[in-house]
Simulated assay, not measured.
Amino acid sequence: MAQTIEEQFPPKMAKPAQRALAGAGITSYQELSKHSEEKVSKLHGMGPKAMNQLKEALEKQGLNFSE
Rank of each mutant, 00 (worst) to 15 (best):
M1S: 14
M1G: 15
A2V: 12
A2Y: 10
Q3D: 08
T4K: 05
I5A: 15
E6A: 14
E6I: 10
E7V: 01
E7A: 04
E7I: 01
Q8I: 15
Q8G: 05
P11Y: 10
M13W: 09
M13L: 04
A14P: 07
K15Q: 07
A17E: 02
A17G: 04
A17L: 09
Q18K: 13
A20K: 00
A20F: 03
A20H: 01
L21R: 00
L21W: 11
L21E: 13
L21Q: 04
A22C: 08
A22V: 03
G23I: 01
G23A: 02
A24S: 11
A24H: 05
G25Q: 00
G25T: 06
G25S: 08
I26P: 00
T27E: 12
T27C: 11
T27V: 14
T27W: 12
S28W: 06
S28D: 08
Y29M: 14
Q30I: 12
Q30A: 15
Q30W: 08
Q30H: 12
Q30R: 10
E31R: 06
E31H: 11
E31S: 09
E31A: 15
E31C: 08
L32Q: 00
S33T: 05
S33A: 06
S33C: 11
S33L: 04
K34M: 07
K34G: 04
K34L: 11
H35W: 11
H35F: 02
S36E: 02
S36F: 10
E37T: 00
E38I: 01
K39Q: 15
K39L: 13
S41E: 10
S41P: 04
K42Y: 01
K42A: 06
L43H: 06
L43M: 08
G45T: 01
M46F: 03
M46Y: 02
M46P: 00
G47H: 04
G47W: 02
G47F: 07
P48H: 11
P48W: 07
K49N: 03
K49L: 10
K49A: 11
A50Y: 02
A50G: 10
M51Y: 10
M51E: 06
Q53P: 00
Q53H: 11
L54K: 02
L54P: 07
K55I: 14
E56N: 15
E56F: 12
A57I: 08
A57V: 08
L58E: 12
L58A: 01
L58T: 02
K60Q: 15
K60P: 05
Q61I: 12
Q61G: 12
Q61E: 15
Q61M: 14
G62S: 12
L63H: 09
N64R: 13
N64M: 12
N64E: 14
F65N: 05
F65H: 04
S66H: 14
S66R: 06
